[in-house]
């Protein structure tokens, strides 16, 4: 379990993180969503033990991460801007990781070569940005991590590679109980990948959701009636949003799909449609006022 409790972090005069609380269960993929400058990178680097917490606590498997080599051996961080030693080939870099991580698995490294299909004798600096990212993921996975912390990992990958990497990571989660925290400024990128999503806005988590719950329990309902209904009818429901266009009502409601259908059917509607909601819409409605503020930034 990865946990951040009341985590704060100041950058001189700026409060980058203002009391962040995050819990990530083992074996899950947690998507951290936020605009640029929301504090994603700061949070991830603190989780990875690079930055020291100003106050609050960061722990992985119940231990503090900062200056904890035994734990950090199992926690791999891949930053958004990568660093490799000048003039190093992939092989050189692998050797470096091998000398640092006692958990290094040479077989896995060789197996993964087939997946990534990169020449180990090529100088890394000469590879494209997307290829370099693959190198980082390849090396990270070869150390047999228990936790992977990825800062904007899919940036710069083409769609084929993106899918490949996602599949590989999901496979690893399934096979090795890997826990992944991944950040992005793009909701759509995380949609089919994460099982939990947290939204970080101005240094605080404003929303945290289980993806399955989200999609199951929220509905968009279009309904029209012969004669206007009293307000009480709607008030008894758990409505997130209500709009009237002519005689057609548009509701966003929470609850079991069948129960909602049954409820409206009793009033003999002329029209009753239960429509699917996109993830973006869900977030915007869920977050209310905050949602409108960051809608334009995170949901493109």
């Amino acid at each position: 379990m990865i946990e951040a409790k009341n985590l704060t972090k100041d950058f001189d005069d700026i409060e980058a993180l203002k009391g962040v609380n995050v819990v990530v269960e083992e074996g899950s993929i947690y998507g951290l969503l936020g605009s640029n400058g929301a504090g994603k990178t700061t949070l991830l680097k603190t989780l990875a033990g690079i930055y020291k917490e100003d106050s609050g606590e960061v722990s992985i498997f119940g231990e503090r991460v900062f200056e904890n080599p035994a734990l950090k051996e199992r926690v791999l961080f891949i930053p958004d801007s990568l660093y490799f030693f000048a003039g190093y080939t992939l092989k050189d870099m692998a050797e470096f990781y091998k000398s640092i991580y006692t958990t290094w698995n040479q077989e896995r490294y060789i197996t993964l070569q087939r997946v990534f299909n990169l020449d180990p004798n090529k100088k890394i600096m000469k590879l494209s940005k997307g290829m370099q990212r693959q190198v980082a993921i390849w090396l990270a996975l070869s150390t047999m991590p228990k936790v992977l912390i990825l800062d904007e990992p899919l940036d710069g990958l083409d769609s084929v590679m993106r899918q490949k990497v996602k599949n590989l990571l999901i496979q690893d989660v399934a096979d090795h109980q890997l826990t992944i925290i991944v950040s992005s400024h793009n909701l759509r990128e995380l949609e089919d990948f994460c099982d939990h999503i947290g939204i970080l806005h101005e240094g605080a988590i404003v929303l945290e959701k289980d993806m399955d719950d989200l999609k199951r329990d929220i509905h968009k309902i279009q309904v029209a009636f012969r004669s206007p209904l009293s307000e009480e009818v709607f008030n008894s429901m758990n409505l997130l949003y209500k709009e009237k266009r002519g005689s057609v009502y548009l509701f966003i409601a929470r609850g079991d799909k069948n129960a909602v259908t049954k409820y409206f059917a009793e009033f003999d509607p002329v029209l009753l449609d239960i429509l699917p909601l996109t993830l973006e819409e869900i977030f915007i409605y869920e977050m209310g006022d905050v949602g409108y503020a960051i809608e334009n930034i995170i949901i493109k």
């Binding site: 680097k45 200056e67 801007s81 660093y83 991580y101």
Partner: peptide, 17 residues
């Protein structure tokens, strides 16, 4: 610098080491 610093300090090695 930023990138190499992040890289070195994410390794499972104490700063003193």
């Amino acid at each position: 610098r930023k990138n190499p610093s992040d890289m070195f300090h994410s390794l499972p090695i104490r700063r003193r080491t």
